[in-house]
Design a protein around this nucleic acid. Structure first.
Length: 280
DNA sequence: TTAAGCTGGGGATCAGAACC
DNA sequence: GGTTCTGATCCCCAGCTTAA
């Protein structure tokens, strides 16, 4: 979809991009070889041609931050096909909602090689270096929650990184609600006994682990892994759905193999969680 | 419960076309 | 050449939604 994109160019919005597509200019290559362009693009053709040529070069160099700067934020999903092999799917667990009064307990990072957990007081200091390996981050509501929370605690680190927050494209597709509700509607992931847990349970599991319940730590990590494992599947659905909606001839996204992540957890933790909630 | 950012609506601005 | 109209983009703001 990215080589079909023109809305990252100055003075080109969705209407002019549509005109280009309707006139047969479907790709950057079409743009550069076209003898004439629709009026609105023709006015500024010289500058646009050089920017389209630059876009081709930047894509050849896999420069995600160039497109991240130029694309409107609600069109970031267009980066997914080209950059998913350089993407990290990220989800954090915390002790509360406010970065001022709460701490990060763990961060789960998934790519197509596997899943890594960065846990407070274990290996959280490795997180920054780990995230620097990626050109693209994919989250659910990460623009408002996960990424600002991480930067609040660990310092600036995402200024140059492209980011797709799946929550907003999902809304455009008519899918509102939290991640778990959307997974259910899309029939994605989470077959395990942990499917009934929510973010507040993650807070409680962290407290249980701090109070000596060793199984709670592994169960928390497993809960987080199940959250991030659904993100690649949802990202594909978003990409395919919004690409279809734009109705422009473009390369189809090949389905990816999400790594098999099987982590141990103790069903006893879920029972102890339920007892804890009854007592509260 | 807090904070961030997206969405959508409305107004401002700009450029081109049409008309006198 | 000046005016008006139209359409697109940009900017701002309020409201909404979500995360643990």
């Amino acid at each position: 979809m990215l080589p079909n994109t023109f809305v990252h160019l100055p003075d080109i919005g969705p209407v002019t991009e549509r005109e280009l597509w309707d006139s047969g200019v479907h790709t950057w290559e079409d743009f550069l070889s076209a003898s004439s362009l629709p009026d609105r693009a023709e006015r500024n053709a010289g500058q646009l041609r050089s920017l389209v040529a630059e876009s081709q070069e930047r894509l050849d160099e896999m420069d995600a931050s160039y497109f991240s700067d130029a694309l409107p934020r609600n069109e970031m999903w267009r980066l997914y096909a080209e950059f998913r092999d350089r993407a990290a799917f990220v989800d954090i667990e915390t002790t509360g909602l406010s970065p001022d009064s709460s701490d990060i307990t763990m961060v789960g990072v998934l790519d197509f090689q596997g899943y890594r957990a960065f846990v407070q007081d274990e290996n959280m200091e490795d997180l920054r270096g780990a995230l620097e390996e990626y050109d693209l981050l994919v989250t659910f509501n990460g623009a408002a929650f996960d990424l600002p929370f991480i930067e609040h605690k660990l310092g600036r680190m995402f200024a140059q990184v492209a980011h797709i927050d799946l929550m907003f494209p999902l809304r455009r597709m008519g899918l509102t609600g939290g991640l778990k509700a959307i997974e259910k509607r899309l029939k994605v992931g989470r077959p395990s006994a942990l499917s009934t847990l929510n973010g507040f349970d993650a807070v409680l599991m962290w407290r249980m682990w701090r109070n000596g319940d060793k199984a709670a730590r592994d169960t928390l990590v497993r809960y987080n892994a199940e959250d991030v494992l659904s993100l690649p599947k949802i990202a594909e659905i978003v990409y395919d759905g919004l690409t279809d909606r734009l109705d422009v001839p473009c390369a189809k996204l090949e389905p990816s193999d999400v790594p098999d992540v099987t982590l141990p957890f103790d069903e006893g933790v879920i029972e102890r969680l339920a007892e804890m909630k009854v007592r509260r």
